[in-house]
Design a protein around this nucleic acid. Structure first.
Lengths: 153, 153
DNA sequence: CGGCATTCAATTGTGCACAATTGACTTGCA
DNA sequence: TGCAAGTCAATTGTGCACAATTGAATGCCG
């Protein structure tokens, strides 16, 4: 038996990534529960808080999600009264997403979320070295994602 | 407006993790397609190739998945003729998963998958430094996941 | 001007994740 | 011994992800 042909679960970067991502989402859940939004909905709101009035397509570019995921997600945010969805007037193919007053107000509630999570992850936001380590990890993950998406098709 | 209160999408480690994980899964898809299994099914097979005959609970411990996810996943693997599921005889609560000959044989097909993926991610398997960097990243992700799961409940 | 390719969001269908519950089975302890 | 607590896999219901298709709207090119 080929004991070492790189098929050991614990050797897989992919599994470490998979497990860490799910642990992260689970860690966010109790912090987002008071806001009444899910983790992907929270990501969409992060984009909207930076750029209110974006198109569904632009949101999709930013989050690497397609309309198959975003359309129902945005409908749920609309049902909760956090955003509005309206067809473009000049270009009737597009749909523009705007924050409602409630959606804008939710940003204040959300400010404590990243701090609470950093705390839970054992990062001291005041520690310069910890912040640098976090930024380095983030950079490595971004570089990895870019390399994975790039080649061929 | 508080321009810098840590709510910028690109500052979020969580988003880098989320995006990288999905990029990874998408990168695996074309490699797993010839095997006829999905990415989570592949992870379950990695466990089974290491430890044939494990219980559903043990598989769940290993992958951090519950029966709500594993039961249907394993039923699909059973339908494809890769595993069998049978109630324990001594303890009738548990279900034991065994690889079929086809399931065992698939391991040979799978051996090229991690190599192909490493290649796609721009890692040279022969480069000692690249392997060390990969191991370091894996370790950081594991440590992060552990810190996120640990505290309170 | 006409028509063909392209760009959009929406829809359809499959397969995870995960919380919560269910119900069978086992264990431990009074 | 009996029963209460705990352990299992399965089920139910919600919400992503994503491939593939649809159909409307736009842009381009002759």
């Amino acid at each position: 038996m080929a004991a070492s042909d790189h098929l050991a679960l614990d050797d897989q970067l992919c599994f470490a990534l998979y497990a860490a991502q799910r642990a992260m989402t689970r860690a966010y859940a109790p912090l987002l529960e008071p806001l009444g939004v899910t983790y992907p909905q929270y990501l969409a709101l992060l984009v909207l808080w930076e750029a209110d009035g974006v198109l569904v397509r632009e949101l999709g570019d930013r989050l690497a999600l397609d309309s198959g995921t975003l359309t129902p997600l945005l409908k749920r945010l609309e049902e909760r009264g956090l955003v509005t969805r309206q067809r473009g007037t000049d270009d009737e193919r597009v749909v523009r997403i705007h924050l409602t007053p409630a959606g804008k107000a939710l940003r204040q509630e959300a400010r404590k979320v990243p701090i609470a999570l950093a705390c839970r992850a054992g990062f001291d936001p005041a520690d310069k070295r910890a912040r640098a380590a976090l930024a380095a990890l983030r950079g490595e993950l971004r570089a990895l994602a870019e390399r994975l998406e790039e080649p061929a098709a």
